[in-house]
């Protein structure tokens, strides 16, 4: 099959970008979307043009490195029958002759580095603000010291599957990083190990989230819709609940 791509090209963070049209021929329906971009890049390289820069690594949907907006939806969710990362979206989801728009995540806290590559360091800084349990290596009690009920363990797990790809921010009309933040809050809030720092953690993480310049959540739900790992939307409510509780708690700062 053949497709027409309209790809965002931007030389670096400070330059202006624009959409550039390319034809990609002999695309196999079994190719992943990124393999199709590889094909385009091989072609551009042979012609002596600069290939399109895009982030990717594991190509099996778990590292969270890849992510572009395809036809207006993060990871091409609008074209995929199931929640997906960009690397697991396959060309059989498109028709022969399709015109496909490809853009980077767009959000103030995710500045474009080049073409489709953005800087998601803000996510790391949110984790640095408190997305952990303070336990030094060697200081752990026996793993069976605390039992965790199945329901809470499962809920913690559902939230912990976040891969930090940033699709939630890319899809959010407010550019809010709330689903990402809420996933970590909920993961640790459900476990006994997360309790001592629970109140402090949420205050610090929210403060960092806001200072990074992410927007606020208005409960629209685009984030959970495009999330490749289906982080439950209700984690955000868990975050809100803990945040309210932290305002009335002496544990917090």
């Amino acid at each position: 099959m053949n497709v027409t791509l309209r790809v965002w090209r931007q030389a670096n963070a400070s330059s202006e970008g624009r959409m550039v049209t390319y034809q990609v021929q002999d695309v196999s329906p079994d190719m992943s979307f990124l393999e199709m971009l590889d094909l385009l890049n091989e072609d551009l390289t042979v012609k002596g043009e600069e290939p399109v820069a895009f982030d990717h690594d594991c190509r099996e949907g778990i590292c969270g490195m890849c992510g572009v907006v395809i036809n207006g939806t993060a990871h091409g969710r609008g074209n995929s029958p199931v929640p997906t990362t960009t690397c697991q979206l396959h060309m059989r989801s498109f028709e022969d002759g399709a015109v496909i728009d490809v853009e980077p995540w767009r959000a103030g806290p995710f500045p474009v580095i080049k073409d489709l590559v953005v800087d998601r360091g803000a996510f790391d800084r949110i984790i640095q603000a408190g997305g952990y349990v303070s336990v030094n290596t060697g200081a752990a009690p026996d793993a069976h010291a605390n039992a965790v009920g199945k329901l809470k363990a499962d809920r913690a797990f559902d939230a912990a599957t976040c891969i930090g790809c940033g699709a939630c921010v890319a899809a959010c009309p407010n550019s809010s990083g709330m689903l990402f933040t809420a996933a970590k809050i909920t993961h640790l809030a459900m476990l006994p190990q997360g309790q001592p720092e629970r109140k402090l953690r949420i205050k610090n993480m929210i403060a960092q989230h806001d200072s990074e310049g992410f927007g606020g959540c208005t409960n629209i739900g685009e984030c959970a819709e495009v999330c490749p790992k289906q982080i439950p939307f209700d984690t955000i409510s868990q975050l809100n609940r803990d945040l309210i509780a932290s305002l009335f708690s002496r544990d917090g700062k």
Binding site: D101, R106, N174, F214, G221
Partner: peptide, 23 residues
């Protein structure tokens, strides 16, 4: 305030954007 934060957070609009969940 929320509106302003959203505007600040999303300075450059998408060329093509489709909402999937928004009512």
């Amino acid at each position: 305030t929320l509106w302003k934060r959203a505007m600040d957070a999303n300075p450059s609009a998408y060329q093509v954007k489709k909402q999937l969940a928004q009512t």
